[in-house]
């Protein structure tokens, strides 16, 4: 059996060397390359000032045009809305910004039925993986992420999250291909006008969401909640907003502002480009200028 075990050791040696080399190459790519997603952008932001920061799901990413806000107010703005994200993802981004000594005037969070689920989105956790072993990632973020010890193993976090931080992304990082989104703005508008749009919302809202509590803990004073529009056809819309206001009394609702403007909707939950710009103007007027 000696030869067999020697062979196995040989294979393991090749594997271990490969794992260490790749871990080094991958980690370097995400740390030295241009930011290609919002998590990487937030991690790379250091000691600067942004007046208005918008957090939330795709209903922030698709609705808040920061360039327009800057034009209207003369203040800097960053949209960190992430498609398919959960509240904890936004809280993590806020934690990262705080840890990176980013100062701001106000943080806005778009509140809707997404507060009904806790935890993190897999895509966000994947995008965070290259940075979880960084010295500057503070222990309070790591403790909230509840990561297993396996992230300490070299390369494993890249292999198991290969869709977001795999080989393809590493090549694009080294190649220097920019993100298709302008990350300094973060807005990504939708095209088209929805035809015969329908939707359904939950009628009740959960009271305590760990991500909301985390954000409130991080920013007790300047955290502003708002709700972006939904189409008037959305079933349970009024019930949901009533419950949302009961549970989160400080929320400013824009849920029905476009009930007579069907051409502003790409579908029931999303405004199109024209609608988003109009909404951004209204929000700026109501929350930032008044």
């Amino acid at each position: 059996m000696k030869i067999f075990f020697k062979y196995i050791y040989g294979l393991l040696l090749v594997l271990i060397i490969g794992v260490f080399i790749l871990d080094t190459v991958y980690t370097a790519a995400f740390h030295t390359g241009f930011a290609r997603n919002k998590t990487q952008y937030a991690v790379q932001l250091k000691e600067s000032h942004i007046d208005y920061i918008f957090l939330g799901s795709s209903r922030v990413e698709n609705h808040i045009d920061c360039e327009l806000i800057t034009e209207l107010t003369g203040k800097s703005c960053l949209n960190l809305g992430l498609q398919g994200s959960r509240v904890n993802d936004s809280a993590s981004l806020l934690q990262i910004l705080k840890d990176n000594d980013i100062s701001y005037k106000k943080v806005f969070y778009q509140l809707d039925y997404s507060v009904n689920s806790d935890g993190f989105s897999p895509a966000f956790l994947s995008s965070l993986m290259p940075f979880v072993n960084d010295d500057n990632v503070k222990i309070n973020l790591l403790s909230k992420l509840e990561l297993t010890k396996s992230t300490k193993l070299p390369f494993l976090q890249y292999a198991t999250n290969d869709k977001i931080v795999g080989f393809r992304e590493v090549i694009l990082q080294y190649y220097g291909k920019p993100s298709r989104q302008d990350l300094t703005n973060g807005y990504d508008g939708r095209d088209g006008i929805g035809v015969d749009i329908k939707g359904e919302l939950p009628s009740s809202i959960k009271e305590n969401n760990s991500g909301i509590l985390w954000m409130q803990e991080l920013e007790p004073k300047n955290l502003v909640f708002f709700t972006a529009p939904y189409c008037k056809e959305a079933i349970n819309r009024d019930l949901m907003i009533k419950d949302l206001k009961d549970k989160y009394p400080s929320v400013t609702s824009f849920i029905n502002i476009f009930d007579d403007k069907e051409m502003y909707f790409a579908d029931c939950g999303y405004l199109n480009n024209k609608g988003a710009k109009s909404f951004t103007r209204i929000l700026t007027q109501d929350l930032l200028l008044n």
Binding site: L15, G18, V19, A159, D162, I164, G166
Partner: peptide, 20 residues
């Protein structure tokens, strides 16, 4: 042989699909 094994292991690590 060992060069081929090494290449295949590297490809398994880099191009293999593990997340889904």
């Amino acid at each position: 042989k060992w060069l081929k094994i090494g290449t295949v292991i590297l490809m398994l690590l880099t191009l293999g699909v593990y997340s889904n």
